[in-house]
């Protein structure tokens, strides 16, 4: 390819930015470079409205009924479980890898197993928990899909919250800066981040679709406010929180798979 045919870097930038801007504000579709530049300057001055600290906790608490059996994967210092145990009388169990956080759990009287989620959850029996929580944890795992699948094996419901890498400010930062974005929700640089598997809301929904997982409910954090998940949130949501369950039949499908492994030869794939 000849050098002269490579589009001007500036044009490329505005092409990506133009798409994002238009998706957010239809009036910007086909706007000229000057309008876009002005819009960008405005955006750069504003920053996302701050969300309440650990906003997910409040929504997770709403989802979990009193007396439920709850497993919190990556439970940190056990604050959420402690509150759930106190206020909702849930039977809580945490798993956490960081020894200092584990000590804090013990001090809060939260049962906690010091363990690496990436080693799997073989220790837990099928369906032992009503809810399994993965709060701001999936993106830190080496084997995120293995853990997500395990979550829905040991729990009837999964609750997953995560930073959405499809969020428009993240996209703009990447498009304009050409560097890994550093935002309030993603405060690390590329080399010191625990977030080794960043993904977008759409990525997760795609996985759910393929894996026979149903989105029972979803919430997104948009401009500091939590609202029910909607179609354009892959661009708008800074973070998302999803309640997941196996699709009806999907469990059978899995059992079928187990039966196949046991020697019963049936048709290859159940019903994707």
């Amino acid at each position: 390819m000849k050098r002269s045919r490579v589009p001007d870097a500036c044009a490329l930038r505005y092409c990506a930015v133009g798409e994002i801007a238009a998706a957010l504000e239809p009036r910007l579709r086909n706007a000229d470079a000057e309008t876009l530049r002005r819009w960008l300057r405005e955006q750069a001055r504003s920053s996302a409205k701050a969300a309440p600290a650990r906003w997910q906790d409040a929504w997770i608490e709403r989802e979990i009924p009193a007396g439920a059996k709850v497993l919190d994967l990556g439970c940190g210092g056990g604050e959420l479980l402690s509150r759930l145990m106190r206020e909702k009388k849930v039977r809580g169990q945490g798993v956490e890898i960081d020894p200092a956080a584990v000590m804090r759990c013990v001090a809060l009287d939260v049962p906690v197993l010091q363990s690496d989620l990436d080693d799997g959850l073989q220790g837990f029996a099928d369906g032992r928990f009503d809810f399994v929580i993965l709060e701001e944890t999936v993106q830190t795992l080496r084997h995120p899909l293995r853990v997500l699948n395990e979550m829905l094996r040991v729990g009837r419901h999964g609750i997953v919250s995560f930073p959405n890498f499809g969020y428009w400010r993240v996209r703009l930062a990447l498009a304009l800066e050409g560097r890994m974005p550093v935002t309030e929700r993603l405060p690390y640089r590329w080399h010191d981040t625990p977030n080794i598997h960043l993904f977008t809301l759409r990525d997760l929904l795609d996985w759910a679709d393929e894996a026979g997982v149903r989105i029972v409910r979803g919430y997104s954090l948009v401009e500091g406010e939590v609202r029910p998940l909607s179609a354009e949130d892959n661009l708008r949501a800074e973070e998302a929180l999803l309640v997941l369950a196996r699709r009806r039949g999907a469990r059978k499908e899995r059992q079928g798979a187990a039966a196949r492994r046991a020697g019963d030869r049936r048709r290859e794939d159940g019903g994707r």
């Binding site: 039977r91 809580g92 169990q93 020894p99 584990v102 000590m103 759990c105 013990v106 049962p111 906690v112 197993l113 010091q114 363990s115 220790g123 837990f124 029996a125 032992r128």
Partner: peptide, 21 residues
């Protein structure tokens, strides 16, 4: 030790397991 803790967990008991470095 961890296996013991996991067995307790499997039996539905509240259990904590800590590995001190």
């Amino acid at each position: 030790c961890k296996e013991f803790a996991l067995q307790l967990c499997r039996a539905g008991k509240p259990v904590s397991y800590v590995e001190v470095p």
